[in-house]
Design a protein around this nucleic acid. Structure first.
Length: 551
RNA sequence: UGGGGUGUAGCCAAGUGGUAAGGCACCGGAUUUUGAUUCCGGUAUGCGCAGGUUCGAAUCCUGCCACCCCAGCCA
């Protein structure tokens, strides 16, 4: 059920193909920096880039934009590859900006030779002072007019390691008076005596983003270089570099709005803090909007792809409601997940007129609408568990679950009627005594009498004891800001339920397999499970019009 | 007082001069052994605001307003 939308970027690509631009080729790339884990916002970019390549017979590269050795590492790079693949995409080439370091250096030399770049010996602070402000032009560096020979010599010595970090930098010679601050002689190389996760200690000068991105794109023959809105005013620089150096092609940068999702944060910096400072259990904490977190939570790749398709791609920066993502998983899992029964907050029910030693097997469908999913048998006996919420001693109007004297249907089981309520000394209901109607096996009565409620249940004797982790939004605020986000954490974002009772079939469920627990929601078997003790994550609840009505 | 963007329903989003698609959410109703799913129906006399052009404007013009991004040797 994948919808292929059109959007302004696809229109540009289609138009370019029709016009014969780039000989009709389409090459895109997804260029993450390996300094953190991917999140749902990256998924939007991944789906866009790979999706366009797919539908126009092109190719998409995965390229690590690894020009800042101090922040990057291989763990991040590995996680990125894993996540892209899990989402279901295949890159044509696996590339690294660091793989272009030698050629990038050559382009820098070319710029110097043309008098379009110079070695500046101002300190970082002085450079900042010279840059001017948003409303005032910058001032030229006293080193701006150094001769080509001197620049070449200094740049060579920068590379050779003769200088310390920050002593010199290489700057593009553009326009210190430009209204666009990115054009005020941007630094394109800096000295950093740091070892790089791929190139080791080979380099002590590293190219900056603006110099690297456009040239990497050109070297890979990228036709459409898609990035987010904040790079819009870098585009003149992107084009300047490509226009002034001898490259095989000139990719077109196109910007789109990044994804914002309410009740969560998407910034890598903030996510990193949540992980490093232990507000969550790791990058794959199911409460996080990271790909690995969503995966552990039970989201499917298809649901994420459909979500990305549905929210569209535009230049307006909007805030998408979490409900859209939730709808996407429900839709996918409703179709694909097998059904089981499980009781999260058990209440014991004893069926007085059912023989004490008898256990019978009842037949349940694994999916209400897909017979090919088959059937399973579930045990039934005198003692069962039902959900505490499914009983009320003094029910409100329109409540059609169990109550004193009421008859309900046990799904795939019998009709039972509540005869007696057993309480402890504190007055809490601890047990129900019921009777069943032997004529209603399977859930229908020969006399055709109607019962309003159908409830899930689990046979007490054979139930599997499980831990279930139920999640709520990580933040209480729809739009947590970087200043207040720690204060906005939702203290109830994780609730661990122990001694939940599942039907026996679930004892052997595979890690990462997904089920619908009928009437409750979709759940995913967590990696913390062991043979005796499954752990489930609740991905999302079912829609619940009763909860809405009761509230 | 600089530069670059964006404004269509509660949220996303089509629309490219011919009379406001679709999705999510929401509200009705039907079916239902999951209060689920599914199915039907409803929800902008209105497109940031004000003028103008035109037989006709969300689309073109003018002026305003609001919001977002930019002053890392981060990406």
């Amino acid at each position: 059920m994948s919808i292929e939308s059109t959007n302004f970027i696809r229109q540009i690509v289609a138009r370019d193909i029709a016009a014969g631009k780039n000989d009709g080729r389409v090459v895109t790339r997804f260029p993450p920096e390996p300094n953190g884990y991917l999140h749902i916002g990256h998924a939007k970019s991944i789906c866009l880039n790979f999706g366009i390549a797919d539908s126009y017979g092109g190719a998409c590269n995965l390229r690590f934009d690894d020009t800042n050795p101090e922040k990057e590492n291989i763990e991040y790079a590995d996680s990125i590859k894993r996540d892209v693949q899990w989402l279901g995409h295949e890159w044509r080439n696996l590339c690294y900006a660091s793989g272009y370091f030698e050629r990038l250096h050559g382009f820098a030399v070319e710029l110097i030779e043309k008098g379009m770049a110079y070695v500046d010996s101002l300190t970082p602070e002085e450079i900042r002072e010279h840059r001017g402000t948003l409303t005032e032009p910058g001032r030229e560096s006293p080193f701006r007019d150094r001769g080509v020979g001197e620049n070449l010599d200094l740049f060579a010595r920068m590379r050779a390691g003769e200088f310390g970090d920050g002593e010199h930098s290489l700057r593009a010679r553009i326009d210190m008076a430009s209204g666009n601050i990115n054009m005020r002689d941007p630094v394109i190389y800096r000295i950093r005596h740091a070892s790089h996760w791929r190139s080791g200690d080979k380099w002590c000068i590293y190219p900056m983003y603006d110099f690297t991105q456009c040239l990497s794109d050109a070297l890979e023959g990228v036709t459409h270089s898609l990035c987010t809105l904040e790079f819009e005013d870098h585009r003149p620089l992107y084009d300047w570099v490509l226009d002034n150096v001898d490259v095989p092609c000139h990719p077109q940068q196109i910007e789109f709005g990044r994804l914002n999702l309410n009740y969560t944060v998407m910034s890598k910096r903030l996510l990193n803090r949540l992980v490093q400072e232990r507000y969550v259990a790791g990058w794959d904490d199911p409460r996080l909007p990271t790909i690995s977190g969503l995966r552990r939570r039970g989201f499917t790749p298809a649901s994420i792809r459909n979500f990305c398709e549905r929210i569209g791609v535009t230049k307006s920066d909007g805030m998408v409601e979490m409900g859209v993502l939730e709808h996407a998983v429900r839709e996918d899992l409703d179709n694909d997940a097998e059904r089981r029964m499980g009781v999260l907050r058990p209440l014991k029910v004893i069926i007085d007129n059912y023989p004490a030693n008898r256990i019978e097997e009842l037949v349940a469908r694994n999916h209400p609408k897909r017979p090919e999913f088959g059937e399973r048998s579930i045990p039934f006996s005198r003692e069962i568990y039902i959900e505490r919420d499914d009983f009320m001693e003094d029910p409100p109007k329109k409540y059609f679950r169990l109550a004193p004297g009421r008859e309900v249907r046990l799904r795939y089981g019998y009709y039972i009627t509540c005869r007696e309520v057993i309480k402890n000394e504190a007055g809490e209901v601890v047990e129900l005594r019921c009777t069943y109607d032997p004529e209603t096996k399977g859930g229908t009565s020969p006399d055709g009498r109607k019962v309003k409620g159908t409830m899930h249940w689990v046979c007490a004797e054979n139930a599997v004891d499980a831990e279930v982790r139920v999640y709520d939004r990580l933040f209480q605020s729809a739009n947590p800001t970087s200043e207040n986000f720690l204060n906005q954490l939702n203290p109830h974002s994780l609730e661990v339920l122990r001694h939940c009772k599942l039907e026996p079939d679930l004892a052997n469920a595979a890690i990462e397999s997904r089920y619908q627990l009928e009437r409750q929601g979709y759940f995913c078997i967590d990696a913390d499970s062991d043979a005796l003790h499954p752990v489930l994550n609740r991905t999302v609840t079912l829609r619940d019009s009763w909860a809405k009505q009761a509230a």
